[in-house]
Simulated scan of single mutants.
Amino acid sequence: MNKLFLISFLFFCQLGWSQNSEKEDLQNLIEDFFEAFHAQDSKALRNFAHPEIKMQSVAIDAEGNTTLSTEEYTTFLKSIASIPETTKFEEQLHGFEININDMIANVSIPYSFFINNELSHCGVNTFQLMKSKGEWKIIYLVDTRSKLGCE
């Protein structure tokens, strides 16, 4: 009975450690994504994403209506690469909530977005990722954008 308990205990400890390691890997991947984003490195950004990635944004318009927009990832990459060097932009991340379920994961991150050191908007990024051949790839990215409630 003691051997069974010990084996079970060690197995569950390994699972817990493995889950924490996966969470660290996912956080590092997202941090690397934003490092490439700030560097306007469209090649690196492309490598983080699955070829069939989907992108959407949920925003509140001037009349207070909630809107949904969809953007092709290639359009996003072109727009990032075309930002003039004179424009400074920074997306500050405010923590990570990471959930893993076998071969898929969800990473949710509140953020504040600054243009030329002035707060532009804030919201939450939600990344959906898929693990294939031992590698995590972003398959869906949705964010919220609002000027309300930003600090």
Score class of each variant (00 low, 15 high):
M1H: 00
L4M: 12
F5C: 14
F5A: 15
L6Q: 09
I7F: 10
I7D: 06
S8F: 14
F9H: 04
L10H: 07
F12C: 11
C13Y: 02
C13G: 08
G16K: 11
W17G: 13
S18E: 05
Q19P: 03
Q19R: 07
S21R: 06
E24K: 06
N28F: 14
L29M: 13
D32K: 00
A36T: 11
H38N: 09
A39C: 06
A39H: 11
S42K: 09
A44M: 09
R46M: 09
R46T: 12
A49T: 14
Q56I: 05
S57E: 06
E63W: 07
S69Y: 02
T70G: 06
T74A: 00
F76E: 10
F76I: 13
A81L: 01
E85K: 15
E85S: 15
E90T: 06
E90P: 00
Q92T: 10
L93F: 00
H94K: 14
E97M: 10
I98C: 00
N99E: 11
I104D: 03
V107D: 04
I109H: 08
G123C: 07
V124A: 06
V124Y: 02
T126Y: 04
K131Q: 11
W136E: 04
I138Y: 01
Y140V: 11
R145A: 03
L148T: 14
G149M: 02
E151R: 08
E151N: 14
